[in-house]
Write a protein that binds this DNA or RNA. Structure first.
Lengths: 227, 227
DNA sequence: TGGTGGTATTATGAATTCAAAATGCTAAAA
DNA sequence: TTTTAGCATTTTGAATTCATAATACCACCA
């Protein structure tokens, strides 16, 4: 029996705004007009304002007192810092996963790994990333630590909108796949410390950061803030 | 020149409620009556409700749709999970600190370390914990990663109210001090991976968890929820 | 006596209203 | 021509009001 979802308006609104930010319809630094959004959602200002408060404490939105809200702007440093954090959390997730994971779950992840290898061999970058992400998500889920999952998802949400333009060089890609081979081995042995180490050092995140150096505006470029 | 603090009511209110929770004037599971709090703060319901939304997404408060707010109840598992997370974050903070920390800051931490040792020798538990905490905070600050600091502080806030009744056995205490000796050594060498490792495994957190097993109600004991 | 149904009360959710701050515009002065 | 003062407009902050869901209470019935 599935739970009855008492959805309040402010939750609904928060989800919608989150979505707008994620898909880039609200750009970083862009002013969020309460009036405009209220009209497009067909709600009054109260639930919208409540939603904005929530999004602010999630780090997606910036509230300037008496001057409204704007989509949080990501500096290169913030993104780097966030990825560092995510690596550490992934490390922990691996360590914990080894303590809790069932044989069946390991099998499932191995299956994903095989599929990933397949996409690697066929050089299907898009599909590769997708399965790759599923593997990391599975490990995170196996950690059996909900606080960890909540935090990781929050961080991931923050940087989601800059997740594109991942150009893999051949050497990087090979190294990443090698990391995954080692991960699977550690997982099968249920060697938590080892899996943790591998995940913390896994260069997938590091790579993304590296490839970002051009994509994000560095520090406050005042012009980008306006309108 | 210090920034002008445009403090909105909802921030003020959130701080006040956070404080009430931290100091145990609002107990876990206790119903939060909007009317009552509004009257005691002398504000209308709007800013209070906004504050509650924020506190909810900070994990301090639980919002039951159409049924009001209550102080988040901590299960033993949640606290354990949170401490696991905090250890991982401390590990990261150590790793990063080694990359950024100045000689002067290292000196400062060494000074704190000496003071801590002194309290250890004199068996001044209270003072020991205080200086101990300052050391960890200094390392966190030296990490130069604000996202990390924000997240650590949030987690710390969540479990603050169960931070008491730390009874140290002699062996534990000695081990903890030994850890600190190694930490200082790693810090002086600026050996990030080593300091990270030590901090992740530092049994201070593990100890606290262990000592909690009796303190917190395990899982939903329905009676504790009411009134 | 225990349980069910229905009404009254209370508390929450959301819209509206009122107040205050910020912004934009025009005009006057340096 | 540029700057600044002052007013009008817009936008945000907070209180109030209205609507709706939850709770408490009581009578009625088995």
């Amino acid at each position: 029996m599935s739970k009855i979802q008492h959805r309040n308006l402010y939750r609904e609104v928060a989800d919608r705004v989150r979505d707008l930010i994620e898909r880039g319809e609200l750009m970083p630094g862009e002013r969020i007009s309460e009036k405009e959004l209220c009209e497009s959602f067909g709600v009054s200002r109260t639930p919208l304002r409540e939603a904005l408060k929530v999004l602010a404490s999630e780090g997606l939105v910036e509230l300037l007192p008496n001057r409204g809200a704007r989509v949080m702007r990501l500096t290169l440093k913030m993104v780097k810092d966030t990825y560092d954090l995510m690596s550490a959390l992934e490390g922990l997730s691996g360590e914990l996963a080894c303590q809790h994971i069932s044989d069946k779950e390991i099998d499932k992840i191995c299956g994903l790994h095989e599929r990933m290898l397949d996409h690697y061999r066929k050089r299907e970058l898009q599909e590769y990333f997708q399965v790759n992400q599923q593997i990391h998500e599975s490990i995170l889920a196996a950690s059996n630590n909900e606080v960890l999952q909540e935090m990781y998802n929050n961080l991931s949400q923050r940087v989601k909108r800059v997740r594109y333009s991942k150009q893999m060089t051949d050497t990087f890609w090979r190294q990443a796949v090698e990391d995954h081979e080692n991960m699977i081995a550690a997982l099968k042995k249920r060697d938590g410390p080892l899996l943790g180490q591998i995940l913390r050092d896994h260069l997938c995140n590091k790579l993304e950061v590296a490839s970002l150096s051009g994509v994000i505006e560095e520090e406050a470029s005042p012009s980008a803030a306006n309108s």
